[in-house]
Design a protein around this nucleic acid. Structure first.
Lengths: 135, 135
DNA sequence: AGTAAATTTGCAATGCTGTTGCAAAGAAGG
DNA sequence: CCTTCTTTGCAACAGCATTGCAAATTTACT
């Protein structure tokens, strides 16, 4: 239940948090601030949404998704994520048709051989194409 | 010569374009708008720089670099790039130390096996770590 | 070289995205 | 039910990027 997730993370149960968390639970794919603003029917202040997202990230409920088009997206974390320590080494897929962004949990970012001198620490991969629904 | 590149692309030869193009030719690594603003010593208006970058991208002289931190970076295109059609399937490297972004022309983005239904069209990869200079 | 036409530049204004301070409203805990 | 602590909404602000328009510059032509 949505309430329990908030309580488990020591967060006050408020209308905005319930609603926004619910959106993430039912959404397939990642959400941007603007998506949430739209889907909540503008019942919450922009600032509240920003702060809620920030809080959720800090608690490890959602995480920040790498994009290459300079948008800011969030998605639910898997169980392995904890407050302050996110695991997110999977490939992300962006559909050119419906422009949804989806976490491909089962596809891990491949290793690449870098030129001499370059020391990799973390790699991110974003694949663009057509998703399952749009094909 | 810098002038010739402009003329080849049917662009008027102006001071700002010469200077900015020159910056790209001599820079190692990608440039952001702010870098250019700094390196030109604020002799051009911010707007002019924006418009120049836009024009260069349209002509295929520079291209937009994928980043995962929501910054906007540009780098020179290789010969294969043409107006409106960029080739940019190499890996990009971001140094955590000096925070330079470098095109690893010789490292191509590896293919990944996607779940059923997903149809890849283009993939981008950004590797973070420590670069040759900073190691 | 000189001039008209077309392009580019700089300024001002505007929009979008995200942040901060603060008082009022709401949740938690007894 | 009441006190305390947290969260919300508003207003203001900051940074980055875009647009309209008049002035300046470049190009092309004579």
């Amino acid at each position: 239940m949505v309430q329990d997730i908030l309580k488990k993370n020591q967060l006050s149960v408020t209308e905005s948090r319930l609603k926004i968390l619910d959106l993430f639970l039912t959404a397939q794919g990642a959400l941007a601030h603007a998506d949430i603003e739209k889907k909540t029917g503008e019942s919450f202040d922009r600032v509240t949404i920003y702060r809620t997202l920030q809080t959720f990230v800090e608690k490890g409920i959602i995480h920040h998704i790498p994009t290459t088009d300079n948008s800011v997206l969030y998605a639910l974390c898997k169980e392995e994520c904890e407050a302050g320590h996110h695991h997110d080494n999977h490939v992300h897929f962006v559909c050119d048709q419906c422009s949804k962004t989806i976490c491909l949990e089962e596809v891990t970012v491949p290793q690449v051989k870098l030129p001499k001198g370059f020391n990799p620490r973390q790699a991110e991969m974003v694949v663009h194409g057509v998703c399952d629904d749009c094909k």
